[in-house]
């Protein structure tokens, strides 16, 4: 453990800024994916292990649109919307059949979907990894130097986009009728049905929104690296850690937990480069011991 390196980093403006900016970018990308996962769990009570596969689909869809149109913005938006629509079909055809089923049945269904989608993308797009969609031309400029810390402008864009998404999610969930119905569905769906609300529509809408967020995360990730079958498997573990730390079902909790994980990875790489994954799990264990419902979860 290089604790002195961490101390040196914290007192150096260049290191502090670059690691903080890096941590923020890691956290915000993670938030896009984890927020969808926590939303689906909070409202529908489904642990959607196939969420990572939806993230992968977002990357592939955006790659396809980019290949056809060459337009970055369109590729990202279509990638996210495409996965949203796929999520709607997934929910209507499969997920709604297991809402009240045993947890093992839900996991089995999701795992089957992961295997099918992983193979399906290889059949459609080939088994070789694909070059990502790249960074839009406007951001292909030299990085910014702030107190000698290097910050790529595209990373700032990713953080801003994610912040806007977080704000919109908060507005939707707290200020709109749909948000109120979603929260009511999470608390007492039977009462809502008795009042004449079609909760199936609400549930499908929530799953669609969760899928959209996974797709958006995947599409943005495709701009920063290669696109490959199975790429969702690594992000799903981190997303679950975020969900557990933040509190199952809490979007605010997912936001805070994502930043914590981003910072843990960024500063952990300075202090304990061989234990960055371990730090994430350690934080999760600490939260589970001290506040089992998560940082912003509700006690049941």
């Amino acid at each position: 453990m290089e604790i002195f390196a961490l101390f040196d980093c914290i007192i150096s403006p260049a290191c502090l800024i670059s690691q903080t900016a890096g941590g923020l970018k890691i956290g915000m990308l993670l938030f896009l994916v984890a927020s969808g996962l926590t939303l689906v769990f909070g409202v529908l009570g489904v642990i959607n292990f196939a969420h990572g596969a939806l993230y992968m689909l977002g990357a592939y869809f955006s790659w396809q649109v980019m290949a056809v149109t060459g337009h970055f913005g369109l590729a990202v938006i279509c990638g996210a919307i495409g996965v949203g629509i796929f999520g709607l079909l997934f929910e209507r055809l499969l997920i709604n059949k297991v809402y009240n089923a045993d947890l093992l049945v839900q996991i089995l269904l999701c795992y089957s979907v992961i295997l099918i989608l992983d193979d399906l993308v290889m059949i459609i797009w080939g088994d070789e990894f694909l070059s990502g969609i790249g960074v839009p031309e406007v951001f292909q400029i030299p990085p910014l130097f702030i107190f000698d810390a290097i910050i790529p402008p595209f990373h700032i864009a990713i953080v801003v986009i994610s912040m806007i998404v977080a704000l919109l999610l908060w507005l939707i969930m707290t200020k709109t009728k749909f948000g109120k119905l979603v929260r009511a569905t999470a608390v007492n769906p039977k009462m809502l049905e008795a009042l004449g609300v079609n909760t199936n529509v609400i549930k499908a809408g929530v799953f669609m929104l969760g899928s959209f967020l996974a797709g958006l995360g995947g599409a943005l990730a495709a701009s920063l690296g290669s696109v490959v079958s199975g790429m969702g498997n690594s992000i799903i573990i981190e997303s679950f850690i975020v969900t557990v730390i933040g509190g199952m079902g809490s979007i605010g909790g997912a936001f805070i937990a994502s930043i914590i994980i981003g910072m843990a990875r960024s500063f952990g790489a300075v202090a304990m480069p061989l234990f960055t994954d371990g730090i994430m799990f350690l934080i999760m264990v600490l939260v589970l011991i001290m506040k089992p419902e998560g940082l912003m979860g509700k006690k049941k």
Binding site: S18, A21, G22, R265, G268
Partner: peptide
Amino acid sequence: LGKGWPKIFQPDYTEVITQIAR
């Protein structure tokens, strides 16, 4: 000066790259 150990199939290398940049 330092060694980065990303895990295999890691999608995001930011924490290693910021270390290199620093």
